[in-house]
Design a protein around this nucleic acid. Structure first.
Lengths: 96, 96
DNA sequence: GGTTCATATTACAATATTATAATATGTCTA
DNA sequence: TAGACATATTATAATATTGTAATATGAACC
């Protein structure tokens, strides 16, 4: 049913509908980073960082693996980067 | 500044982060429709319809023109349709 | 086992989003 | 200009999202 599709799609848009979460994905790019690396790079509290990461992981935007005490995150599907580019292309035209 | 970009992009993701708004865009496609046509098609109250349309228009996802008593809306940039397809492609894989 | 470091979870207050209901605006026609 | 019709706006209560602070889990090392 189309309606169900749209509910799911809306959830995914919602996952990306926060500046911090877009910054997380941008800073990750195609690399892997630990939570503390990201928290430092984005100047965020450990707790807030972790909550945003958890949300992105729940929506399958990110994946993680543990290595000792640290947890490393990465963008699951690189198409997400293209999606964000496309969004900026459509809605954030460069001002001349 | 990249941070500003992400705030703006997040707003745009937020505009699409609602099932009703995705349905509006889907039902519009590349056509034009009046508010009442859409309200009927989606079985929504006039007020709720109008509020979602206003939000989408504020974010420049839709444009409108008045013709007599009626107001017709259309998707401003067809790339938005591709964006939504891409989102579904990434996050809503067809189950086999 | 106890301690430390890295991350996750929970509780909660502040803020934002949403749908409904009521009211207002704008346009046409009589 | 009065009434009807289409749309927009406002007010508001319900719900959801957010960030901070506090607590819990899990892994390494002693």
């Amino acid at each position: 049913m189309a309606e169900e599709n749209e509910k799911m799609a809306a959830k995914c848009f919602k996952a990306l509908a926060h500046p911090i979460r877009l910054r997380i994905i941008a800073v990750l790019g195609d690399k892997e980073m630990s939570v503390q690396q990201m928290a430092e790079a984005l100047n965020l509290s450990q707790s807030n960082m972790s909550q945003h990461l958890t949300l992105l992981k729940e929506r399958h935007a990110l994946d993680s693996r543990r290595e000792g005490k640290q947890v490393f995150y990465r963008v699951l599907d690189k198409k997400i980067l293209k999606l964000i580019d496309l969004m900026q292309d459509i809605f954030c035209p460069p001002k001349k």
